[in-house]
C-alpha cells in the first residue's frame, strides 16, 4: 500500500458517501444516472465475488463490503425509496452498448480463462466506461448540481490516483498489470473534459453549466 493507492481508495470512498448523502439529505436523486449506478453495482458484484473465495486483509474485506453495500444502497434509494425523483427522461444511454463489448473483451483479453478471472476482467473494463451514462445525462441537461460535480470529481480522481499508484509500483516493485493500467487510463481520460469544467467553474463557486 502506497500513498497514491490509499488516497485513491479514500477518494473512491468519499465519492460514494457524497452520493448517498446527497440523495438522503435532499430526498432526491435528480440529476443522477440510474444507469451508471446499475453498471457500478454490476462492477462491484463481478469484482468482489472473491470476498467468498480469498481473504486478503481486514482493510480489503471492509472496503469491498462498503462499496457493495453503498452501491446497492444507492440503487435502493434511486429505484425504490425516492423513485419519484428519478429523472429517467434524461437517463437514456443504451447500456447494452457498454456491457456487451466489455463481456466480449473480457472473454478475449484476460489473465486466465477462468470464471472468477473473467468476471474480474469484465469488471475492470466495465468500470472504465460505467460513468458514460452519467456524463451523457449531464451533457443532455447541460448542467449539474454542485454536489453532483463533487461526486464526479471524487470518483474521477480515484482512478487517476490509481494510475500514480501503478507508476510507483512499476518502479518500486517492478509490478504492472496491463489490463488494469489501460482500462484505468481510459477511465481517467473520460473525466478530463469534466475535470476542466470542474476546476474552471465549480471551484470558482459557479454552477457547472455547459456552453449552449
Amino acid at each position: 500500500m502506497n500513498i497514491f493507492r490509499l488516497l485513491g481508495d479514500l477518494s473512491h470512498l468519499l465519492a460514494v458517501i457524497i452520493l448517498l448523502l446527497k440523495i438522503w439529505k435532499t430526498r432526491s436523486c435528480a440529476g443522477i444516472s440510474g444507469r451508471s449506478q446499475i453498471l457500478f453495482a454490476a462492477v462491484y458484484t463481478a469484482r468482489y465475488l472473491d470476498l467468498v473465495t480469498s481473504y486478503i486483509s481486514a482493510y480489503n474485506t471492509v472496503m469491498k463490503i462498503v462499496f457493495l453495500v453503498a452501491s446497492y444502497g444507492t440503487l435502493y434509494l434511486m429505484f425504490l425509496k425516492f423513485k419519484a425523483t428519478y429523472d429517467h427522461n434524461h437517463d437514456t444511454f443504451r447500456i447494452e452498448f457498454l456491457v456487451l463489448p466489455c463481456v466480449i473483451l473480457a472473454l478475449l483479453i484476460n489473465h486466465d480463462f477462468s470464471a472468477l478471472e473473467i468476471l474480474w476482467t469484465f469488471s475492470i473494463y466495465l468500470e472504465s466506461v460505467a460513468i458514460l451514462p452519467q456524463l451523457f445525462m449531464v451533457s443532455k441537461t447541460g448542467e449539474a448540481e454542485s454536489i453532483t460535480s463533487h461526486y464526479l470529481f471524487a470518483l474521477g480522481t480515484y482512478r487517476g490516483l490509481y494510475l500514480f499508484n501503478w507508476i510507483y509500483r512499476y518502479y518500486a516493485e517492478d509490478h504492472y498489470d496491463l489490463i488494469a493500467i489501460i482500462a484505468g487510463i481510459v477511465q481517467t481520460v473520460l473525466y478530463c473534459d469534466f475535470f476542466y469544467l470542474y476546476i474552471t467553474k465549480v471551484l470558482k463557486g459557479k454552477k457547472l453549466q455547459l456552453p449552449a
Binding site: M1, R5, S57, Y162, D174, Y176, D177, A180
Partner: peptide, 10 residues
C-alpha cells in the same frame, strides 16, 4: 512482475 493481477487492489 509482468501482468499478474494484484488481488489486494480494489
Amino acid at each position: 512482475s509482468e501482468s499478474e493481477r494484484d488481488k489486494d487492489e480494489l
